[in-house]
Design a protein around this nucleic acid. Structure first.
Lengths: 130, 130
DNA sequence: GGACACTAGATGCGCGTGCATTCAATGTCC
DNA sequence: GGACATTGAATGCACGCGCATCTAGTGTCC
């Protein structure tokens, strides 16, 4: 097998795995908790890093979402009461995003679903490395 | 590390890789050849299996796209003249999809871009298997 | 301090997606 | 053969995305 073929095969495998898991995750999180995958990922980040920084910036930095997608996702989460926006006084362009109590609760519940879906649809050894 | 943590880490890694590559692929294919990633994948399937079967069905079977997404993607490709639809006489609900000469040409050109993007953004050994 | 570049985030827009539904063709059962 | 379920594909719809743009606040240079 040439290295090109290996490359394409690896990509195909990644594509398949991703779509399989993402599709199930999206459905399960939405049905059980009213969250999209991206929204869950945002909550997950917020739970992980509970220090004070310019959140929008930082969130965007280690996520795959574009700035605009993140902005809207946070807007949805705020509307649902899972997250709160707060002005940053030091630099009034910045916006802090923090979990609400309800947000933490929802994340805790959704985490179960998240893990369950990963466990049943993500085979850890299935990558196409050759 | 617990197995749950390993699972989540693997998923994060997959998510990151996928988005990195998919984003670049989408851009490169679109800029250089006016194709979306899905459209290229469809052409790629058609090049690979040049036997006669109910195409829509078969295409959907080994792709990640939903039936409706596939239907529309094929419609776009047909509109661009890269693909042709043909009625299946044996079962007149079915639709054959075949590459046009131009479709083959476009695929050949796009394949270069595809491989180049994979080569530069997909590290084969980067999966998070632990 | 006033003009100008830059940065953080929000928003208008077009597009591709999945879901649910629809429509036509096919199979089945009496 | 007629009623009914089933199947292949197309389509209405709502939604999340990325890109480009806009707004407002900040920094810089004279």
């Amino acid at each position: 097998m040439t290295s090109q073929e290996a490359l394409v095969e690896h990509w195909r495998s990644l594509l398949t795995s991703y779509n399989e898991v993402a599709c199930h995750l999206e459905r399960a999180l939405s049905d059980a908790h009213g969250l999209s995958m991206s929204e869950f990922e945002i909550l997950d980040r917020l739970v992980a890093q509970q220090c004070e920084k310019r959140r929008m910036q930082d969130l965007a930095a280690d996520m795959y979402l574009s700035q605009s997608a993140l902005s809207r996702a946070v807007a949805r989460l705020e509307k649902s009461g899972l997250v709160a926006r707060a002005l940053c006084e030091a630099d009034r362009r910045g916006v802090f995003v923090t979990l609400t109590t309800e947000g933490l609760r929802r994340h805790t519940a959704a985490r179960e679903t998240h893990l369950a879906v990963l466990a049943s649809h993500l085979q850890v050894g299935q990558d196409a490395r050759r």
